[in-house]
Amino acid sequence: MEGVSYQRFPKVKIRELKDDYAKFELRDTDASMANALRRVMIAEVPTIAIDLVEIEVNSSVLNDEFIAHRLGLIPLTSERAMSMRFSRDCDACDGDGQCEFCSVEFHLRAKCMTDQTLDVTSKDLYSSDHTVVPVDFTDSAGYDSSEQRGIIIVKLRRGQELRLRAIARKGIGKDHAKWSPAATVTFMYEPEIHINEDMMETLTLEEKQSFVESSPTRVFDIDPNTQQVVVVDPEAYTYDDEVLKKAEAMGKPGLVEIYAKEDSFIFTVESTGAIKASQLVLNAIEVLKQKLDAVRLSEDTVEADDQFGELGAHMRGG
């Protein structure tokens, strides 16, 4: 099989891009590539998250581990993460994770002095590094900034106090979900919908109406002028087969034909805010390339031959 190249040149078309949301098309590739990208976005794009918590005083209602867990899940701005080191690979520090190359220190001091309940939020976390701070949702989501005060960590009543030191480190979603930059990463096959116009014309308006309404999502509609059934939003189709079943029930099989284009995908990416959605995609491609490089490098080494020798022979048909 040598000499035959399966290389394809995928195209990306961006449809919508916000700080924490991206929608794009990926064409001219297959499911394996699309899925690899999705998997890397969820599990292997590095971010920074709180990993070690030293509690000095905690007289709140939540116990130490509980607060530590909650702190870990707070997304931190992680533009720096790609260039940072994992604390396990860091040569500059002796593994305590307190050096500038692999960690960021946070402090939290809160005490409730009044009769009103005090909300301790991610805004109360003070970072030693101004590039790594808790994600601020106020501007992006359009909340009123006076109301929205970040992510609540714990509530304190009069006299209760929380004082702690936390160290954030670089990590990947595979180790713990707190390091995953992705809130949602998903894709769908682009549907291709063909209406058999001749057959459609044999339907009465009521039948057309009930056909359009049989789909749980608004894929079809009736043109008010021509009274023809038109496809308004093919991507709203969820591959539920409802319209096909309806067509069959009406005694008109083949009224519509729906195929999934097997080489084009519509991606939806939502970020936790740790990195921008666009950067998340780019970082994922970068990580994927690094992984492929690792495979390529090991391909012709002796160790690889030892390791995969038998498998290789099997693949060659031996």
Binding site: R38, R39, I42, A43, K174, S180, T184, T186, M188, T238
Partner: peptide, 12 residues
């Protein structure tokens, strides 16, 4: 099992 190995819907 890791989340990336879990099935997902197109709505995420």
């Amino acid at each position: 099992i890791q989340q990336e190995d879990f099935p997902f819907s197109e709505t995420g």
